[in-house]
Design a protein around this nucleic acid. Structure first.
Length: 965
RNA sequence: GCCCCCGUAGCCCAAUCGGCAGAGGCAGGCCCCUUAAAAGGGUCCCGGUGUCGGUUCGAACCCGACCGGGGGCACCA
């Protein structure tokens, strides 16, 4: 039965036709259809198997399409008009693909662990779950009012124990794995133990106690060796400690100026034992697989930069009894290396430091200290206490101290003083460099400061004005009895010196990455607890043990105080203290993990909020599955590769570019681990990714520089006035602080959701940023009114569609619109789709004036074309046209090619590139026919008279160009 | 400093393979409807594609340099 929604509505104001599509009618229609969609489960997507498989036979022969938005963090601030842009983009695509014969999965969820809810809880004493759930309800209502087609049965939040149970389960998988460099993939840790026991594999370098073999180790010692191989491991290292937030942060969460991405507090380097994830093992795969993804170039570039692959060589220098290994991208400049620099935290610093300064040591090298040890200790202390911010503020002036020892340059035999300096970073390369001041600007600065020699090994151009020369040129000063690089270019010199390094055992070619392992511990309450305990007593005390799968989830305990201990922003000496450590009855637990009941201490850190977003796309496939994190059959159906070599993954993922090196890198990493372990069939989580643009808005300041309410500013003769006074216009983010907030609720109240949707989609391609302009929304309202008027008589309310054949012009207009709308939908350029719909509507408005019938086939096609964009209006019109089912499941029109070509076309005739005439020719006219038709035109003939035609270019269907002398 | 993206009408944006610069919307002018206003309908207006040079029969599109805007990275050896 057809249901229509307009019966109960108030009559419109005087003079307005009684059946006009007014905002009030739009509201009525929208609310009615939203209720009906929910009641009928219109957007329930059937799975091929399992709990959600009812109705699958209806879609079994359809190709699948899995579309997603980056799920929102349910903040209390609510949505402004910028937020829905991406959600609407996936919604329009989802509705289009469903109508075009796909089985479409378009779910939504909530990323609900995280700082703001916890900070709010600290202020109010209310449990973060309470505020978070209230915010989720509010956003969910806003989304429903927009008319999006989410399958709400699949909605969940990352704070649901039924979800974070599996987040913990995945952590276990990562913990119980190691990365096998030979196969370049993750494998179960049990296989490592088997190979070590069998002697078929050696432990990774640096993991064995000095001078011992695996066979000689005790069980506890072996545990430590194995733990050092895990993909999730405890590690003591300098970390980003943020006293203002009371937690440590990952590198990705620290901004370039050394502050926290959230809250903008200073961050300090501080050694701490923390959970790390070995993402660096995947650096190469994360890099090369970018080429297999349908992502924007800029986003791929950002990930490439972050991974930061560089190729070069490792070179070993003898220093006293020790060997210092450096990394360099310029091994060709080895003849120019005049000193070495280690990072202040380099492990060999203590061993290498000499007992006393030699006679006559340059005072600049000692920092005024009596002994090298004192100088080193003071410098290390200073380096560790300085925040990244301080380092920037000091203008990168080079500082450092000499260790009192020298290394030997393997090529020149020269003695190279060995320094520590904070311009060399621990954790990148080997944490040590050979300094070549002639060809490196930083080394040049340091050498100038410390009076160190400079040897140029690349010939600078004649007009070079000094300093480090980093350009190209022939090698100079680079030969001895063993090796000559002189005259070679950079590439040849690198090849030759690398060969020599390998031959003499002094080094080898290598690759390094800027990417660091992922710091995975947070000292917060509102996050997933680690499924990890530590034995309290016994030889294995303090070693981590994963909580068995059967004991998951490890529930977040209730506590009285949610706050982490925070400190003064600049208190570099403070140390983190997790809130869970105060939940004493929770932290200590007696468990039987196979060797009888023992007392254990729980891990009291929590996971970063990226954990929940690392795999949520998989959980949409069945969020209620209590047996496994995802059913492999569902994963294969929705995510699996389409063929050999295909990476698989979500078919369209839309979200903000701000996650380029956070969420998007972490999720790829986890997905690859799950792939290696055989839990998923897809190699990548997100096949196609689009960053939606941002919506900004104008803001206005008065003479004092204060923001005034943007909504009350009027434009007059190019001037902007607020209460009669001129104001200054700026362009910026939408928000309360700029007093330019506009909410979707206001726009929906004023125009209806369909108008709001069409407006947002009409202002540009999805990935383009654009300004918000409230006064322009009326254009979309007018379009929908005209669409309505084409189908419904405004005076009588009768449907105007009649079974008459459209004329040829109308058929051409229709089929061209269909073709263009399909193209716009596929390429996410909804602005073009809307423009073509507008053209078709305008055509129908003028050819079928009020009171005349509209060809039914055309009216129905128009309704189908607008259905993805303005779904409520389309449902209403579809029903009034006599259809029972939802238009969401009707077939999207297909253009008939016969109407896409004209019988005759107008082609331009150019003479020497200037258009001189238009001639009409049959559409299929070939070049010769075109030329003949052009020559037959009088204007052309006049232009050509008395001239020599040297060349004729005729492009069928386009133009003819005569090139004359 | 290095890398990436983008400059078309007052504004937002189109333009298939290099082929007549203009689809759509906003704003503005005029007309119709209307007692009037609003709403609605119709119609018109405005730029030669940031600048300079090159390739080409032909350039918004390709190449080079520059200018302007946005973004990413940055003591990464």
């Amino acid at each position: 039965m057809s249901q229509t929604a307009s019966q109960s509505i108030e009559p419109p104001a005087d003079g307005v036709p009684p059946h006009r599509y007014t905002p009030a009618l739009a509201q009525e229609i929208e609310l009615a259809w939203q209720d009906r969609w929910e009641a009928e489960g219109t957007f329930h997507t059937p799975n091929p198997v399992g709990r959600l498989s009812e109705g699958f036979d209806r879609v079994a022969d359809r190709p699948k399409a899995f579309l997603m938005d980056m799920f929102p963090y349910p903040s209390g601030a609510g949505l402004h008009v910028g937020h829905p842009l991406g959600y609407l983009g996936t919604d329009v695509t989802s509705r289009f693909l469903r109508m075009d014969g796909h089985n479409v999965l378009h779910p939504m969820g909530y990323d609900a662990f995280g700082l703001p809810a916890e900070q709010f809880a600290v202020q109010t004493g209310q449990h973060p779950r309470v505020t978070t759930e209230a915010n989720i309800a509010a956003i969910s209502a806003q989304l429903r009012r927009l008319g999006v087609d989410h399958d709400t049965r699949r909605t969940f939040a990352t704070i649901d124990p039924g979800y974070y149970k599996w987040t913990q389960w995945i952590f276990r998988q990562v913990f119980e794995s190691w990365f096998d460099p030979e196969t370049d993939k993750a494998r179960p840790i049990t296989e490592l133990v088997t190979e070590l026991d069998a002697g078929t594999r050696e432990p990774a370098p640096g993991t064995l106690p000095e001078g011992r073999s695996w066979a000689q180790l005790t069980d506890v010692e072996r545990r430590r060796v194995v733990d050092a191989h895990r993909l999730a491991y405890l590690h003591e290292a300098p970390v980003n400690w943020c006293p203002g937030l009371g937690t440590v942060l990952s590198n990705e969460e620290v901004t370039a100026d050394g502050r926290s991405e959230r809250g903008n507090f200073p961050v300090f380097r501080r050694p701490l034992t923390q959970w790390m994830m070995r993402i660096t093992s995947y650096a190469e795969r994360l890099l090369t697989d970018l080429d297999r993804l349908d992502w924007s170039d800029s986003l791929k570039q950002m990930q490439r930069n972050w991974i930061g692959r560089s190729t070069g060589a490792r070179v070993r220098f003898a220093v006293a009894e020790e060997t210092v290994e450096v990394f360099t991208t310029r091994p060709d400049t080895l003849f120019g290396a005049t000193y070495l620099v280690l990072a202040p935290e380099h492990p060999l610093v203590g061993t290498l430091t000499a007992g006393a300064w030699p006679e006559g040591t340059d005072p600049r090298w000692t920092a005024g200290a009596a002994t090298p040890a004192e100088a080193v200790a003071a410098y290390q202390r200073q380096a560790s206490r300085r925040s990244e911010l301080d380092r920037q503020a000091e203008g990168r002036e080079k500082t450092g101290v000499w260790l009192g020892v020298t290394a030997r340059n393997p090529l020149t035999g020269a003695d190279l003083p060995v320094f520590i300096a904070d311009y060399v970073l621990t954790g990148y390369g080997t944490g040590a460099i050979m300094a070549v001041p002639g060809e490196d600007a930083r080394d040049w600065d340091f050498a100038s400061e410390f009076g160190l020699p400079v040897v140029r090994t690349v010939q600078p151009p004649a007009d070079f004005d000094g300093g480090a020369y980093t350009g190209t040129g022939p090698m100079i000063n680079s030969s001895n009895e063993q090796l000559s690089l002189d005259g070679l270019d950079k590439v040849a010199a690198i090849a030759k010196v690398t060969e020599w390094l390998v031959a003499t055992g002094a080094g080898e070619a290598t690759t390094t990455y800027k990417l660091r392992d992922w710091l995975f511990s947070r000292q917060r309450y509102w996050g997933e607890p680690f499924p990890v305990v530590y034995a309290v007593d016994g030889e294995d005390a303090g070693l981590p043990v994963a909580v068995p799968e059967s004991m998951l989830p490890v529930l977040l305990p209730e506590v009285d105080d949610y706050s982490p201990k925070t400190f003064a922003d600049d208190d570099a000496d403070s140390a983190p203290e997790p809130p869970l450590s105060r939940a004493t009855e929770w932290t200590t637990v007696t468990l039987d993990l196979g060797d009888g009941p023992r007392e254990y201490r729980r891990e009291t850190n929590t996971m970063p909020n990226w954990a929940g977003s690392c795999w949520y796309y998989l959980r949409y496939l069945d969020p209620a599955d209590d047996e496994r994190f995802v059913d492999p059959e569902l994963e294969a159906y929705w995510m699996g590769p389409r063929g050999p070599g295909d990476v698989g993954g979500v078919d369209l993922y839309v979200g903000g570019v701000e996650h380029a090196v956070l969420h998007l890198l972490y999720a790829r990493f986890w997905h690859k681990v799950l792939f290696d372990l055989g839990h998923v069939s897809s190699e990548e989580p997100f096949r196609r990714l689009v960053n939606q643009g941002y919506i900004s808005a104008f803001a206005y300041t008065d003479a004092r520089g204060f923001y005034v309410p943007a909504a009350e500013v009027v434009e007059k003769d190019g001037q902007f006035l607020y209460q009669g006074e001129p104001v200054n216009r700026e362009y910026g983010k939408i928000g309360k602080s700029l007093k330019n907030m506009v909410t979707p609720d206001e726009m929906i109240g004023q125009y209806g959701a369909d108008t709001f949707r069409v407006y947002e989609m009409s202002t540009g391609p999805l990935d383009q940023s654009r300004p918000w302009e409230t006064k322009a929304v009326v254009g979309s309202q007018r379009l929908l009114q005209r669409v309505w008027r084409v189908v419904v008589d405004e005076e009588t309310g009768d449907v105007r569609a009649a079974d008459v054949a459209p004329d040829d012009d109308t058929s051409r207009a229709l089929h061209r619109a269909i073709e263009a709308v399909r193209d716009g939908m596929t390429t996410l350029r909804f602005n073009i789709a809307i423009a073509r719909i507008t053209e078709l509507t305008n055509h129908l408005t003028s050819t079928c004036p009020p009171g005349t019938p509209v060809p039914r086939s055309v009216a129905e096609s128009l309704v189908l074309l607008v259905a993805p964009l303005a779904p409520h209006l389309a449902e209403e019109l579809w029903a009034r046209l006599g259809h029972d089912g939802s238009v969401a499941w009707a077939s999207f029109p297909v253009a008939d090619p016969q109407w896409l070509v004209d019988d005759t076309v107008q082609v331009a005739v150019q003479v020497n590139g200037k258009v001189r005439a238009q001639v009409a020719v049959p559409a299929d006219a070939d070049a010769a026919a075109l030329e003949a038709a052009a020559r037959a035109d009088e204007k052309v003939a006049a232009q050509l008279a008395g001239k020599t035609v040297r060349r004729v270019i005729a492009v069928p269907g386009r133009l003819v160009n005569f090139v004359v002398a």
